[in-house]
Every structure is written in C-alpha cells, then in structure tokens.
Amino acid sequence: MSNDRLSQTLTALADPTRRAILARLSLGETSVTELAEPFDMSLPAVSKHLKVLEKAGLISRGREAQWRPCRLEPGPLKEVDAWIGEYRRMWEARLDRLDAYLKTLKPQGPTN
C-alpha cells in the first residue's frame, strides 16, 4: 500500500465515526470531550480516531489551550475532490457523446 497523502486521506475517511467527527468539526472547532458526547464512545476511542485524522492532516489540534481544540483542515479533502473531479470530467464527456449519439438516432426511430 502506498504511503502517499491521497491514500492516507482515503484510509482515514474509510470509517463512519471519523466521517461523523469531520462533519461535527465542519461546524466549528471543539474539544475531545465535546466530540465524544454524541458518539456513545469512550474518550480513548475518540482520541484514537482523532490521531488517525491528525496524521492524515484532516484535522489539527491546538497546542496552547488545555483542551487542545480540534479543527478541520480542508486541504486533503480538496485533493480528494480534485481526484474525483478527473473521473467526473471523463463521465461527463462520455455522457455528452451519448447524448449526441442519441440525438442522431431520433430521426430514424419509430414515428407511427
């Protein structure tokens, strides 16, 4: 398995709890304790997920404050979006060609 950033990001995203944590952080920065509340999960478990997200660069943690607030970092998500974007362009081009092809078929179709 590759150690590149996209692989790291996708690995970190391949877990529903971590995606839920990111969704929560998209509303603003928060502490580990606050993050753990809605998840019915122990603090150690939440902390382990945060460490995976932090290593992947998807979140950053404050150094100064006692509760080390977690913050969403959009950089890696933009890279995922760019990667998906390549395929979106490809499919859009194919659909355009299909559309053009279907238009050429229309005149020959059954007309009654």
Partner: peptide, 13 residues
C-alpha cells in the same frame, strides 16, 4: 490498532 492503522505503520518506509 485497526487494520488500516496497522497497515500504514508496517508499510511505512
């Protein structure tokens, strides 16, 4: 560790 975490560690250079 989860499988993903473990893999990332063991596959690291």
């Amino acid at each position: 560790l989860s499988l993903q975490e473990r893999k990332r560690m063991t596959d690291a250079p």
